[in-house]
Write a protein that binds this DNA or RNA. Sequence first.
RNA 1: CAUGCUGCGUAUUCUGUCGCCGGUCUUGUUAAAGACGGGAGGAAAGUCGGGGCAACACAGGGCACCAUACUUCCCAACAGGAAGGUUCUAAAGCUGGUAGAAACAGACAGUGCCACAGAAAAUAACCGUCACGAGUACUGCGUGAUAAGGGUGAAAACGUGGGGUAAGAGCCCACGGCAGGCUGUGGUGACACAGUUUGCGGGCAAACCUUAUGGGUUGAAAGGCCAAAUAUACCGGAAAGCUGUUGUUGACAACAGCAGAGAACGGCCCGUUCUUUUCCGGGGGGUAGGCCGAUUGAGCCAUGUAGUGAUACAUGGCCUGGAUAAAUGACAGAAAGCCGGUAAACAAUGUUUUCCGGACACAGAACCCCGCUUACGCGCAGCCCGGCAC
RNA 2: CGGGGUGUAGCGCAGUCCGGUUAGCGCACCUGGUUUGGGACCAGGGGGUCGAUGGUUCGAAUCCAUUCACCCCGA
Length: 114
Amino acid sequence: MGRIHRLKKNVEFQRIYRKGSYIATKALVAYVKPNNLKETRIGITVSKKYGKSVKRNRIRRLIIESYRLLKDKVKPGYDIVFVARKPDTYDTRLYNIHAMMSYILDKLNVLKRD
RNA sequence: CAUGCUGCGUAUUCUGUCGCCGGUCUUGUUAAAGACGGGAGGAAAGUCGGGGCAACACAGGGCACCAUACUUCCCAACAGGAAGGUUCUAAAGCUGGUAGAAACAGACAGUGCCACAGAAAAUAACCGUCACGAGUACUGCGUGAUAAGGGUGAAAACGUGGGGUAAGAGCCCACGGCAGGCUGUGGUGACACAGUUUGCGGGCAAACCUUAUGGGUUGAAAGGCCAAAUAUACCGGAAAGCUGUUGUUGACAACAGCAGAGAACGGCCCGUUCUUUUCCGGGGGGUAGGCCGAUUGAGCCAUGUAGUGAUACAUGGCCUGGAUAAAUGACAGAAAGCCGGUAAACAAUGUUUUCCGGACACAGAACCCCGCUUACGCGCAGCCCGGCAC
RNA sequence: CGGGGUGUAGCGCAGUCCGGUUAGCGCACCUGGUUUGGGACCAGGGGGUCGAUGGUUCGAAUCCAUUCACCCCGA
């Protein structure tokens, strides 16, 4: 249960960019850094080069939705920043984003082991 | 029927599951939870005009700069809108109507420019025509007059006819064209019509410019309020030292000695004041951050009245996004419309029906309005061009 | 949110203010010469919707309006 905690301060983003480890795929880049808190927080960055505001809003909502579906599997105590890469090179539907995010988070070792 | 343009309308709907952001109420110390009810557009876009709002500035006048430019009206205001005038275009000889377009003040205030071609591109004599003169008597020369004719050019010096002349010319006359002034009539006005008079050597002001009118500057990251951590002005209180040796990276500790920090007032002492260091308490400004600004407004809807119309007025009803790494969504399934394909009927490249397929146009409020411009799916109506069938 | 600039040949730039000859320059490319061959050098040549659309004008890369893309600055 509980809400999705969001990163909002620019300094937090800058700290994660500098200190965190990251993995990139065609659609998504994820930066991860432990935060010594009880919950995991996420931030989303979409560049202006991605497209106009309608496209940027849509990819951001899809990222939030994908994370919401994966939320119960993620270990607590991390800050994660997702960066959307350029479109038109991949399928922008939900199941695709979800699969890619699941792959990335597993690679970064922040998913719970069963 | 299709394309394009113009105008008007519209901007998918329903069900299920899971979510996001405000508001009101209840519970809760807080965090938060529950219930109820709401949550993108015609352009929210571009940021091109104009305002509201806010801070600062401001005696008066001039220059400079910027913007605007037919008339009247509407509007809070505008480079916006409505109605009208003039000119041009469709359009062909004229007239009338229709539709569309117009950055439609000024080129006898001044300066400047007009490539190439052409004799000449602006107060035009190259050829030609005419007169006179000289002589070497010629397809020639010189002086002067002359815009009727001359292959050009985007543009060539009012048009036609007649008179006139050495030859000519609005030089004169008739008819016509254009421009300005004056008078009259109609109109709020731009202007139109009629009369009269003066005059006819271009164009470019989206060249400089002139005239008239308007413009204070900066923008919500404006502006106002609250206010961590750290350092600290200032205020109050308390304490105070120096030297040497030993240990120690150092802070510091122990021992011994001197003395009661330093400066000023003063001959000296006491005393007073100031300075320096540390600690405690208070406290101003200000940073991170937060709150207000900020969602009730030139508001929307309906009806009526006035007006050709934009619009105004009256009455009644309604409250309708408020985020800030930024909510208004995701997935699944139906339905309508549309698009593409498919088959049949009918006179058609189409219509109607059957079946199949389709990540359904442009696009996301960021202080708020009014406009403009641009992007764009579908439906209806009108028009231009084109095609097909009867 | 506000302000400013750029767009011309494959690349880098002039020309735009003040409209008019065939839109030039360097590198690159092609052909020929030179050399045993290559480079360098010499001679010649090709290559442009002047970002797009519309307007003003006799005439537009240039002037005006709209629009597209990119870059920079302030906070």
